[in-house]
Design a protein around this nucleic acid. Structure first.
Lengths: 344, 344
DNA sequence: CTGAAAGCGCTAACAT
DNA sequence: ATGTTAGCGCTTTCAG
């Protein structure tokens, strides 16, 4: 099982290891005939360079670590796609770690990445408590980091955010413009983005003089395989008790889909009886029936921008940080309609 | 930016590097008071061990490489979840690479993993041509590999497969039992699993004396963000020309959902006019309306088993290979019904 | 253009 | 129980 090393190649080609290294990396002049000998030896021995050794030596890794809460919400897949679209040609590869929406696991992920000496870290939708603590602060000094959709600012970190606050406001105001007053709010645990959406929700509802604690529904896991079901159940429960509710704002599309299903099971018509607003515009929001009205987060751009900010940080030796804010756009589809009460 | 090494810790704690290594790894006895000194130094300096150096030394990495075609089909996310459920406690972490359904990129992924000295590789739904060639053969000798849902057998590789052939047969026979005769078949490019499903399809249809080339629909990208749309378009096109078609078999749920949408746009009622059968039982197949009838592949078990086979291989120094076959089960939901022609 | 050799950070004999 | 030291495979001065 002994693997082929640069020494084997050097012997076979009858040159020094330095020369082999040079032809492998193409960073120093090598005579053509020599190069050929080396290349032949490499091919014959099926030599594969050991990146760990190389990177140990150069003190630099070509991996970008990505931390994401889950793979079940394709939101993340779409963001990663954006990241990849930027890094594809850059020689970096992506090490994905995922936290399963669990803060302890998120810490483990960070450590894992640090030990592996990644060149930088992109954290998608980081955990609130952790950001609030200075957990990331120390790390950000050592290693370039960019956060996607995180709202507590740290000087050493770069950010790309959708302005989810404004997005939330627009969404809510749209519902209100349709005549809805009794709007409930579905969220999950712990992510920053839920907190900020909820702030806006409270603000808007209080202005309407209609904020009620019972309308804030926390389903726990917001990005898991069970999210849709959790949301459906919560909505059924809530709608039974609060028949006055005519609209639902969901913090992400998975919850929105759950809400749609919950209504269906209750025999409640969407959008005639109840309007439902999603958030994200995940690709599957077109596919469900009725198609989900939602806020587009443009995940591709989000990912692409994050990657570009990270590259910038890496290039600057982690000296500078920047913040980019993207705007959400409302995507009107089939789950929202004028409030039923208007007809009375 | 110089990072803290084991030497710094040793100096600070006034012990040798070996002692530091011992307390970090906990593999040799260390006096309590010494351990404390070292631990203090580690904490104070914020020392993080360099895994690359460790693994270079031990000639063993704690990474399992995973190759998957895409993240857009949550099939893969669900399989990874299964893998993770096995490895969570084992100290291995997962390096995900994805091929975007592209054979060249798949080769790059393999190489990337090899250079990183991963302990083993799990390849989900590998590329046909590559498997048919002996590309993987040589690699499998050097490094433990397990394939999920691949059908060309190589002695050095372990396999977990759903018996998609039998699954396909059952699905098709179910459609036939509903009276369907004009059944079309949607597939994507290149994955083994499409080939084998198509073989069965041809066999079954020929037995019915009703095999027609035009009923085999290849939409290209089978796991991409566009898959649903591609399938929808293809179905619209096909149904316009072949009004006699009363049932559609789709190689995965994404295509099945696309087929449902295509029918809707055409004003074709599912399942009254046309029955649609999915494959996989991806979690979102419950959420669409009408809910998709499909073949469950039990992705969790698939992933879990793959991980266990890989661990077995690693433990055996890659000497033994095994094959595990899982059975699919038919999940009856709302997209299939008796053939409309029966009523005539 | 090429070779010799130091050293990246760590582990594991081998000594003591 | 602890220290000394030889590498792991590679890159990169420094000489030639």
């Amino acid at each position: 099982m002994k693997s082929i090393t640069i020494i084997d190649v050097a012997k076979k080609a009858q040159v020094s290891v330095a020369t082999v290294s040079r032809v492998v990396n193409g960073n120093y002049p090598v005579k053509d005939s020599t190069r050929r000998k080396v290349l032949d030896a490499i091919k014959e021995l099926k030599y594969i360079p050991n990146i760990q050794a190389r990177e140990l030596n150069t003190q630099h890794s070509s991996i970008i670590g990505i931390i994401l809460p889950s793979l079940f919400n394709t939101f993340f897949a779409e963001v990663i796609n954006g990241i990849e679209s930027f890094t594809a040609t850059s020689g970096y590869s992506l090490l994905l770690t995922y936290t399963k929406d669990n803060p302890i696991s998120e810490k483990k992920c960070m450590n894992e990445l640090l030990m592996r000496n990644v060149s930088g870290i992109i954290n998608i939708s980081p955990n609130t408590e952790k950001v609030a603590s200075d957990f990331f602060d120390q790390i950000a000094e050592r290693i370039p980091m960019v956060f996607i959709n995180s709202y507590i600012k740290r000087p050493a970190i770069s950010y790309v955010n959708n302005d989810e606050r404004i997005g939330t406001k627009i969404a809510l105001e749209y519902l209100i413009s349709l005549g809805h007053r009794n709007i409930c709010f579905i969220r999950g645990d712990r992510s920053d983005s839920y907190e900020f959406k909820q702030d806006i929700y409270e603000e808007v509802m209080k202005k309407l003089n209609n904020f009620k604690e019972e309308y804030v529904l926390n389903i726990g896991a917001g990005n898991s395989i069970e999210t849709v079901e959790l949301a459906a159940n919560k909505i059924m429960e809530t709608l039974k008790e609060h028949k006055e509710i005519t609209a639902i704002f969901s913090c992400n599309d998975l919850m929105g889909i759950g809400a749609v299903n919950g209504c269906h099971r209750l025999g409640v018509n969407v959008p005639k009886d109840v309007s439902i607003m999603g958030f994200d515009n995940v690709f599957l929001s077109h596919f469900i029936e009725p198609k989900l009205t939602t806020m587009d987060q443009n995940m591709m751009t989000l990912g692409w921008t994050a990657a570009s900010l990270l590259m910038e940080k890496i290039a600057n030796d982690n000296k500078t940080s920047r913040q980019v804010v993207l705007q959400n756009t409302l995507v009107l589809r089939d789950t929202t309609a004028p409030c039923r009460d208007l007809k009375k």
